[in-house]
Design a protein around this nucleic acid. Structure first.
Length: 308
DNA sequence: ATGGTTGGGAACCAA
């Protein structure tokens, strides 16, 4: 089986490229991040015509994640249990179902109070399912689905924006909540086949960026973010791209600005954490750098896992 | 030498 992950930076702007990628690589399952659309705007037809089923969650023009599969797609979750939401410090009162309001995550009124970030009330309900109303307290950053016997999570970790920004605390809380769930899945079944793939928005090592000096004081490289990332190893998971790709100058993202790609000023932020049983099945990992070339490229490129 | 989205400008977001 071939499993890939790709932050496409708008599925509507990139649909031909993505379908072309599936065909060229003979991909079975693709986890997509940053679809930048609502469910009703997703170009399902193009994937259906190519023989793929799609599960997507998107509440607005921001975020949005999907899993597409031609080997079945079952037990879909539109959030992980305990997935935190984001709230601005100056946001109005908590919106609860009792308010009877229509939940619109694009609306500031739908954002919860700052206290909600750390409170149980901020947690997405377990097993959020297709057709459920989006709760006002989480963003479309995680979608889980079982495809061909593998539990695939398409993940778009919050950016963090700046060290000390409320989005930075949100990022750390989000990673910690995911690690807690992931540890539980493995504890419950030591033979579990789970893949946590996507845009982690963390640069784990100085060798994962073109110039560490350019990131002094920035997000993505702080000890707290790196610890939150490596905590998945403590939970028993393995980052299999690290095991199969060159240690140096293996990048998955290049900024659109200032000729970053031609100068190879890139960074490695897209990763594939898997349970041990699944890690043992990984025969090869590839970064398709060609997808950064040409007109209409995403700023990220796909990472492809070949499973025995 | 940035691009996508919304909205029909300029602002927001992205690493």
């Amino acid at each position: 089986m071939r499993l890939a992950t790709w932050n496409v930076n708008s599925i509507r702007a990139r649909v031909d490229r993505v379908v072309g990628f599936l065909d060229r690589w003979d991909v079975d399952v693709l986890a997509i991040q940053e679809t930048k659309c609502k469910d009703e705007q997703f170009p399902y037809e193009a994937f259906d015509a190519a023989g793929y089923q799609v599960e997507h969650v998107g509440f607005s023009q921001w975020n949005g994640v999907a899993v597409v599969s031609r080997v079945g797609i079952e037990d879909v979750a539109l959030a992980f249990s305990g997935q935190p939401g984001f709230s601005k410090p100056a946001a109005p009162a908590v919106v609860t179902p009792d308010d009877g309001a229509l939940f619109d995550l694009a609306s500031p009124a739908a954002l919860a109070s700052p206290a909600a970030l750390a409170s149980p009330a901020a947690l997405a309900s377990p097993d959020a399912a297709p057709g459920d109303a989006p709760d006002a307290l989480h963003e479309a950053r995680a979608l889980g689905a079982t495809c061909g016997g593998v539990r695939v999570w398409s993940l778009y970790v919050p950016n963090g924006r700046a060290v000390g920004d409320p989005h930075y605390a949100y990022k750390l809380a989000w990673l910690e909540a995911l690690r807690t769930q992931a540890a539980g899945w493995l504890d419950a079944d030591p033979d579990a086949q789970v893949a946590l793939v996507g845009d982690w928005n963390v640069i784990p090592l100085d060798t994962d960026v073109y110039d560490p000096a350019a990131f002094v004081g920035s997000t993505h490289v702080t000890p707290a973010e790196r610890a939150a990332f490596h905590a998945f190893a403590d939970a028993g998971y393995r980052e299999v791209s690290r095991e199969h790709l060159p240690a140096e100058h293996t990048y998955t993202y290049w900024d659109y600005k200032q000729l970053a790609f031609p100068k190879n000023r890139g960074m490695r932020i897209d990763f594939t954490w898997t349970t041990p049983a699944l890690a043992d099945r990984v025969a090869a990992v590839t970064v398709d750098r060609e997808e950064r070339k040409g007109k209409g490229a995403s700023d990220h490129v796909p990472v492809i896992l070949d499973l025995r």
